[in-house]
Amino acid sequence: MELIASRLVWITWREAMQQALYGEGGFYLRERPSGHFRTSVGASPAFAEAVLRLLAEVDEALGRPAALDLVDVGSGDGALVTQVLRAAPPEMAERLRVTAVDLSPPPADLDERVIWTCDVPAGTTGLVVANEWLDNIPVDVAEQTPDGPRLVLVDPETGRERLGGPPEDPDLRWLERWWPLPVAGLRAELGRPRDEAWAGVIDRLGHGLAVAADYAHPVDNRPPLGTLTGYRDGACVAAIPDGSCDITAHVALDACAAAGERAGAISTTLTTQRQALRDLGLTGVRPPLDLATTDPSGYLRALARSGQEAELIDPAGLGGFGWLAQRKP
């Protein structure tokens, strides 16, 4: 037992997530998300169509600029921007400047009109979408003890944990404001790095709208033991940060919203994906049954479409995502 214990390497969860996801040979540098979990983009082309409608609204609000940006942060395989670009009307497509932001290499079949980069471009004029990006930004985990919050340390190879020292003062202040831990044994994911990442997006947005869509929770209903988990091959697995699986945790979008406002956002909407997509025209309503008699093929297509929309707005699934939308003039 002593020999095994001596081999353990104790680091913070933030370090472990960074190494497992983005370090040499990390999960997101060698894998595409679509191979491991279902996203809104992969669930239905209706999601890209809704993004295109939102882009059109932003375009109109900006007075149809000569160059209109669409930026997809955490693009994965570039599916969202590719679908939007191909569905865009000719007049918009001629002005559209499409950027996919991801640390992984671009797919071989990427549309040549898509710019692939590691950073959000500065001075963006248009729409920035961060779909399931913030949940993969590494964070530390803290546990309340009788002596105050302590960082949770983890061994990357086994997933075993132990308590370390207290968080840094900025994280302690973040905990006090955004995720209070009133009882020993409760845990929190320290979302300050996500706040900073989102503030960076808002800072680089020149004019237009930035949207973050992710699993989220509000300050008055944080999960008592956090949400840290792993995903691999479509299944939820133990969160072992050895690079073999996705490591994710839900997002304190309300804290990100406050960070975005400090970075210059002039308006904030915090809602659910269900409501946001319904506002963009997705209803999930089944086609009338008499269409099956007059146009059987059309009925089947409309039925399939309604099922796809229903999945995107299902409050117990993808529709339960939080949607944070912030605007700069």
Rank of each mutant, 00 (worst) to 15 (best):
M1Q: 13
R7I: 00
W13Y: 09
W13C: 01
R14N: 02
Q18C: 07
A20M: 07
A20R: 03
Y22A: 02
R30S: 03
S34A: 12
G35I: 02
G35E: 08
H36W: 01
L52D: 11
R53Q: 15
R53H: 12
L55V: 13
E57A: 15
A61S: 15
A66S: 12
L68C: 12
G74C: 11
T82A: 11
Q83H: 15
A87W: 06
M92Q: 15
A93Q: 11
L96Q: 09
L96Y: 08
R97T: 11
R97Q: 14
A100Q: 10
D102T: 11
S104M: 06
P105D: 14
R113F: 03
V114A: 00
I115R: 14
W116C: 05
C118T: 15
P121A: 04
T124R: 01
T125S: 01
T125Q: 03
E132P: 10
D135A: 04
D135R: 01
D135E: 06
D140I: 08
V141Y: 09
E143G: 04
E143V: 12
D147A: 13
G148K: 06
L151W: 04
V152Q: 08
V152F: 04
L153N: 09
D155R: 05
E157H: 05
R160T: 02
R160G: 00
P166W: 00
P170C: 04
D171N: 00
E176S: 13
W178E: 00
W178P: 02
W178G: 00
G185I: 00
L186E: 15
R187P: 08
E189I: 11
E189L: 09
D195Y: 04
E196R: 15
A197N: 13
A197Q: 11
W198F: 15
G200E: 13
D203S: 11
R204C: 04
L205S: 12
G208E: 06
A212C: 07
Y215Q: 01
H217Y: 15
P218N: 08
V219A: 12
V219W: 06
D220L: 09
P223F: 08
P223V: 12
G226R: 11
R232L: 03
A235K: 14
A235I: 13
C236S: 13
C236I: 14
A239V: 10
P241R: 10
S244I: 11
S244G: 15
T248M: 11
H250K: 10
A252C: 13
A257R: 07
A259L: 02
G260S: 04
R262D: 05
R262I: 06
G264H: 06
S267W: 03
S267Q: 05
T269H: 06
Q275D: 15
L277D: 14
R278I: 13
D279M: 13
L280M: 07
P288K: 04
L291D: 07
L291E: 04
T293N: 01
P296K: 08
S297G: 00
G298T: 09
A302C: 05
L303I: 01
L303C: 07
S306L: 05
Q308F: 07
Q308C: 08
E309F: 14
L312T: 03
I313Q: 10
A316E: 15
L318N: 06
G322V: 00
G322Q: 03
L324C: 03
A325V: 09
R327Q: 05
